[in-house]
C-alpha cells in the first residue's frame, strides 16, 4: 500500500494545534471586542411547566461589564467617535439607572472617552461602586423622581455646558436599538438555527426589544415579539420602565411589537429566585421578569397544544443587586 502523500496528513504538532484551536479562548486587542456573541442557555427545569415549548435565555451577563447594556454603549460610543461628536476636552454625559452607566464606564475607559453619568440617588449601591471603579464622574438626581428625573437633569446639564458634554441620550439614540438589530437578533437566529417562534423581553430604554424584534421580524415575519412592562408605576423591577407613567423613549417603536405582557414585581422577583435555585442562574430581577414573561407565553402555547421555541434575555447577574447589609444601616444614598 502506498504511503499517503506527506502533505495530506497533518503532523502530530498540527493535530495538537488544531485540537487546541477549538478550545482556546479568543485573544482580542481590546475588551470591547468581547462584547456580544453571548451564549444561549436552555431553561430545562422551568420549561417543564410548558410541555412542548422550549425556553431559551441569552446570557447577556457574559458581556465584559456584566450586562446587556454593553452592546448599546459600544455602538453609541463608536457612533459618537465616528461622527467626531466627542472633541478633545469633552466628556460623554448620559442618564442611566445603572447598567448603561457601567457599560459606558467600561467602553469609555477602554476607548479613552471620559464619562459623566446622571443616576437617581436610589440606584443600588453596587452600581455606584462599580461605575466609580472605572473612574467615571457621577451626578445624582432626586431619588423621588426615578430615572425620568435623571433624564431631565442630564438634558439640563447638556444644554448648560454644550462645550463640556456630549449627550448621546440612550433613550433617543438609534445606535441603541441598532446594536441589537446588528448583533443580538442575528445571534439568536443563528443559535436557534432559525427555529425561534417567540422573542420576549422587558422594556428599559426599549433598545433591546425594539432592535431585536425589528430584525427578527425581517428574518421571519411569523416570529411573535412581545415586550414586558411592570404592571404599575410603583414597581421594583430595576431597569424596567412602566411607559404609561414615564417619559416614553423616542426609540420606542410599538409597530415592531406584537404584544405586551404586564408583569408584577413579585412575579419577577420570585422567578429570579427560582432561576438561581432551579437552573443555577443567579440573575437580576429584570431577568426574572423576562423569564416569568417567557413562561407565561409558554404556558399559553402549551394549553393550546402548540409547540414553540421562546427566547428571552438574562440582562445581568444577581450580585449586582445585593442589598445593603444590616451593619451598613447608615449607608449614604
Amino acid at each position: 500500500m502506498a504511503e499517503p502523500a506527506e502533505d495530506t496528513i497533518p503532523s502530530a504538532r498540527e493535530q495538537v494545534m488544531a485540537s487546541l484551536r477549538a478550545k482556546r479562548a479568543v485573544c482580542v486587542d481590546s475588551i470591547t471586542e468581547l462584547i456580544g456573541n453571548t451564549p444561549l442557555v436552555r431553561l430545562r427545569h422551568i420549561e417543564a411547566e410548558c410541555p412542548g415549548v422550549e425556553l431559551w435565555a441569552k446570557c447577556e451577563f457574559c458581556n465584559p461589564a456584566g450586562s446587556v447594556k454593553d452592546r448599546a454603549a459600544l455602538f453609541i460610543i463608536r457612533k459618537a467617535l465616528a461622527n467626531g461628536d466627542i472633541r478633545p476636552g469633552m466628556r460623554l454625559l448620559d442618564s442611566t439607572s445603572g447598567n448603561t452607566g457601567i457599560a459606558y464606564a467600561m467602553v469609555g475607559a477602554a476607548l479613552g472617552v471620559p464619562v459623566t453619568l446622571v443616576m437617581p440617588e436610589n440606584v443600588t449601591v453596587p452600581r455606584k461602586q462599580v461605575t466609580t471603579a472605572y473612574g467615571v464622574e457621577i451626578i445624582y438626581s432626586s431619588p423621588m423622581e426615578g430615572s425620568d428625573g435623571a433624564i431631565v437633569l442630564a438634558r439640563e446639564l447638556a444644554e448648560q455646558h454644550p462645550d463640556l458634554y456630549f449627550y448621546p441620550d440612550q433613550y433617543s439614540n438609534d445606535a441603541n436599538p441598532g446594536a441589537h438589530y446588528a448583533t443580538t437578533a442575528p445571534e439568536i437566529w443563528e443559535q436557534t438555527s432559525g427555529k425561534i417562534t417567540h422573542f420576549v423581553t422587558g422594556i428599559g430604554t426599549s433598545g433591546t426589544v425594539v432592535g431585536t424584534s425589528r430584525r427578527l421580524h425581517e428574518l421571519n415575519p411569523a416570529i411573535r415579539c412581545v415586550a414586558i412592562q411592570p404592571d404599575d408605576a410603583m414597581h421594583g423591577l430595576e431597569g424596567m420602565k412602566h411607559l404609561p407613567s414615564s417619559l416614553v423613549p423616542q426609540i420606542y417603536d410599538e409597530s415592531v411589537l406584537d404584544d405586551t405582557i404586564w408583569m408584577s414585581t413579585d412575579d419577577g422577583w420570585d422567578m429570579s429566585d427560582r432561576l438561581a435555585e432551579e437552573e443555577g442562574l443567579f440573575v437580576g430581577h429584570s431577568s426574572g421578569a423576562n423569564v416569568a414573561g417567557a413562561l407565561k407565553l409558554g404556558r399559553q402555547l402549551a394549553e393550546k397544544g402548540e409547540r414553540g421555541l421562546i427566547v428571552t434575555i438574562l440582562c445581568d447577574r444577581g450580585d449586582r443587586y445585593f442589598a445593603p447589609l444590616k451593619w451598613e444601616k447608615h449607608y449614604v444614598w
Binding site: 439607572s97 445603572g98 443616576m119 436610589n122 440606584v123 430615572s147 425620568d148 422594556i203 421594583g236
Partner: peptide
C-alpha cells in the same frame, strides 16, 4: 417621612 422605591426604574 419619605416613601422611596427601592429601585430607580428604567
Amino acid at each position: 417621612i419619605s416613601i422611596i422605591p427601592a429601585i430607580a426604574g428604567g
